[in-house]
Amino acid sequence: MYNFILANRVALDLNSWFAKIKDEFYINFIAEDRYMYLVKGLWMTLRITFFAVLLGIALGVIAAIVRSTHDKTIKEMRPGLAKGLLIFFNAIVKLYLTVIRGTPVVVQLMIMYYIIFASSTNAMLVAVLAFGINSGAYVAEIIRSGIMSIDNGQFEAGRSLGFNYIQTMYYIVIPQALKNVLPALANEFIVLIKETSVSGYVGIMDLTRGGDVIRSRTFVAFMPLFAVAAIYLIIVVIFSKLVTVMERRLRNSER
């Protein structure tokens, strides 16, 4: 008898718990089409990340080439305009790396939005620039370590065939360097996806901000925030999976 009552109570509790979940789900996501905050926010997050990654790779490769070219060749170079330019650009790149890696991305984002591009109304573009420039500094160090890890014999073999420095980099060194640093690069992009969650600081409706808006409307924190967390997690897991497949492909090509 006692057991029966207990079982009933549990069932009742479960029932009311499910009902509560259902209600919460309804007001957080269904009512007034609130799920659209998440959908639109996700779309914004993905766009910002995608373009920031492209910008980050472009800046990173250039910065890495300047840095490693300087470190590898400056001693052997004859004095002249080329040497002067290389020293100059290397100093600029070093400054860029120091400043960007030494300050929080959210502060960089706000400086970009409220000061440097104060007149711009395109917050997304500013965010892409801020995150791309930020990511570029980290990508630069990753790719530089990749370039430095390539045996000098590869450079010499390229040069001895008649390739100039840039061609040797392009055809021989960079492809191998990128392959070696692919896991580190993938990690950088995983970090970047999540870093864009501070976009709300400059009024961008990204995924995190979308969840927060729902919370401020419904006064329920649990559901929207966990939904946001789950979406980030799923994206990162899918991305990691893709990278693993890519790595295996690249490795297979050498076996």
Binding site: G153, A157, Q176, K179
Partner: peptide, 10 residues
């Protein structure tokens, strides 16, 4: 031709 071959592994 080098001592360590220096073929392009990729």
């Amino acid at each position: 031709v080098f001592q360590h071959f220096n073929l392009f592994p990729h």
